[in-house]
């Protein structure tokens, strides 16, 4: 079972839910949590644990081979990303702009643009108690989050295929990186909060998972702030609410210290039990 935890809006408590759910679930089943918020991963702040494995992730970008190049310049017109620039007698490659489509490399009449590996980010595998945890981090200044997410999902397939539960902590938003993380899941939990911002962004997230034809449910965080607009929307759209986590300052304080919640706050523990029960009902 692969469960993606996502939200349209950032800061709704996606990581909090993912981390706590994963740790609790690991008590009864083989669980792995993957932090795929590759631009700003925070799961490790809460989980810590021992590093089991660390893997550099590479992507392939062309490298210019001056000797065989006839300077025809065709590569610069093919590249849809302007990652190749011809300056007089040199061809410059901008790896930051490259999307690794291989067009220039494979179409070059001189074979002067062989693909070479360049660093994209890292995947770390930690373990805390029985929980396996992976964190993927994009190198700063790079813009290609989606390829790193794709490789992280491959890493999960390779290393944790037999785990009962794989939980994905997705990047926020509804753009390409969120889609990449969510689309491979069997089920999606959307975390939201009962404010107009939360609702507005939830609607976008709902539209996204519906477009991907993925089954999903909602968990409401900070229940009690804001208004009842969210509940009216969920009812009208017949969207299941799996749990509600109350708005408490205590939770915010524990979070700020990077602490785990469910062993300290009964309301959180109850919410997680509800979610796990629902998950069991699915399989």
């Amino acid at each position: 079972m692969r469960l993606a935890i996502a939200s349209g809006k950032g800061g709704t408590g996606k990581t909090t839910l993912a981390v706590n759910l994963a740790l609790k679930a690991s008590g009864t089943m083989k669980t792995v949590l993957a932090d795929l918020d590759v631009e700003e991963p925070n799961g490790s702040i809460f989980i810590g644990g021992e590093t089991v494995d660390e893997k550099q992730v590479y992507r392939y970008t062309p490298a210019w081979n001056q000797k065989s190049c006839s300077l025809c310049g065709k590569c610069t017109s093919w590249c849809a990303y302007n990652a190749l620039i011809k300056l007089g007698e040199i061809i410059l490659v901008m790896p930051n702009l490259c999307h690794s489509c291989y067009a220039c490399s494979e179409l070059c009449p001189d074979g002067a643009l062989p693909m070479e590996a360049s660093p994209l980010g890292t995947i770390r595998h930690f373990s805390r108690g029985k929980l396996d945890f992976t964190e993927s981090k994009l190198n700063i200044g790079l813009e290609q989050a989606a390829p790193l997410i794709k490789q992280s999902l491959n890493y999960l397939d390779e290393n944790f295929k037999d785990h009962d539960l794989q939980i994905l902590d997705s990047p926020p938003g509804t753009a390409c990186s969120m889609m990449e993380a969510v689309r491979s899941a069997d089920y999606v939990i959307l975390v939201t909060e009962p404010t107009p911002f939360g609702l507005h962004d939830l609607k976008l997230a709902v539209e996204t998972v519906r477009q991907l034809e993925l089954p999903f449910a909602v968990v409401i965080n900070r229940d009690g702030i804001g208004n009842d607009e969210l509940d009216r929307y969920l009812k009208a759209e017949e969207i299941a609410v799996w749990a509600r986590i109350p708005h408490q300052r205590e939770i915010a304080e524990l979070y700020s210290r990077g602490e785990i919640l469910f062993d300290k706050v009964a309301a959180v523990d109850d919410a997680l039990s509800d979610i796990l029960q629902r998950l069991e009902g699915l399989s």
């Binding site: 631009e39 700003e40 813009e143 926020p172 990186s177």
Partner: peptide, 8 residues
């Protein structure tokens, strides 16, 4: 008002 993250 910018986006969260550090990406594009």
């Amino acid at each position: 008002d910018g986006s969260p993250g550090i990406g594009c």
